[in-house]
């Protein structure tokens, strides 16, 4: 099929699909007319039940916690999948650029990039940590915080050499952190079973002050584990993708 024919086919099929999608969407109760009841019930009772001012986190890590376990393991599986797909294949070997052209130096990173990247590293760590530890109070959580924490490590890569970056986040340590993060979430759920409660029941004391960091019981704990897992998973994925630039094919 030529690209032209394919486009014509798509325009016919796509028009039909869009017509059906629009038809379906017009059956919804209008923008701004959310009918409830689930959101309203949670908005009404989440603060009293979980002592978390961040209702979205309360949904994610408490009411819908079992779903989030699955979500976290999707990311875990994706990092493992990337590592598997990008493994060193037969006929490939890693080399450092210095081995290939011993007489030439790699162009140095520009001073402006180095400076900017180093300036951002510290604030990014603080911000990532803040987001991870404030899931229960503000619009934040382990997923967001983990990504920001991973960005801090990528800044180290931008500021210097790839090898320094690899030394900063050795794959073995990152693997372990990822496993602890993913396993910790599941373990918090299993711990509830020990008290005779359902899986992932919020069994910890929820604190007296609404919206303080120490409030909301397992929500804060789970967010912490998720932050570890997400940061490690993203660092692993980025390291795997960057590793590809060091690969050469064939015997050369």
């Amino acid at each position: 099929m030529t690209p032209g024919q394919r486009r014509a086919m798509f325009l016919i099929g796509g028009a039909g699909l869009v017509a059906f999608v629009v038809w379906g969407l017009l059956g919804l109760p209008g923008f701004g007319h959310y009918p409830g009841p689930y959101g309203f019930i949670i908005n009404r009772f989440a603060l009293r039940q979980t002592h978390a001012t961040g209702t979205v986190s309360a949904v994610n890590f408490d009411y819908r916690g079992f779903d989030t376990v699955g979500e976290e393991f999707i990311l875990f599986a994706a990092a493992a999948g990337v590592a598997t797909v990008l493994r060193t294949l037969r006929g490939e070997r890693e080399r450092s650029p210095a081995d290939q052209a011993a007489d030439r130096d790699a162009p140095p990173t520009s001073g402006a990039v180095r400076m900017a990247a180093l300036m951002f590293t510290g604030p990014l760590v603080v911000m990532g940590w803040w987001l991870t530890s404030h899931a229960q109070t503000n619009p934040s959580g382990g997923f967001q915080g983990g990504v920001v924490l991973a960005t801090a490590f990528i800044m180290v890569y931008l500021a210097g050499e790839f090898l320094v970056f690899e030394r900063f986040s050795p794959v073995d340590v990152t693997d372990a952190v990822e496993a602890v993060g993913a396993g910790g979430f599941a373990a918090v759920g299993v711990a509830a079973l020990g008290f005779g409660l359902a899986y992932l029941t919020n069994f910890l004391p929820k604190g007296q002050v609404y919206g303080s960091v120490s409030s909301s019981g397992t929500i804060a704990l789970i967010s912490f584990f998720v932050g570890m897992e997400v940061a490690a998973a993203f660092i692993l994925i980025v390291v795997e993708l960057l590793d590809q630039t060091l690969l050469i094919r064939g015997g050369g």
Partner: peptide, 19 residues
């Protein structure tokens, strides 16, 4: 839907879809 500085009775959007 963040009850940090608003009361529980303030109308807020659905947190479930945001999650």
């Amino acid at each position: 839907p963040y009850y940090w500085d608003i009361t529980v009775h303030t109308p807020a959007v659905d947190p479930v879809v945001q999650a």
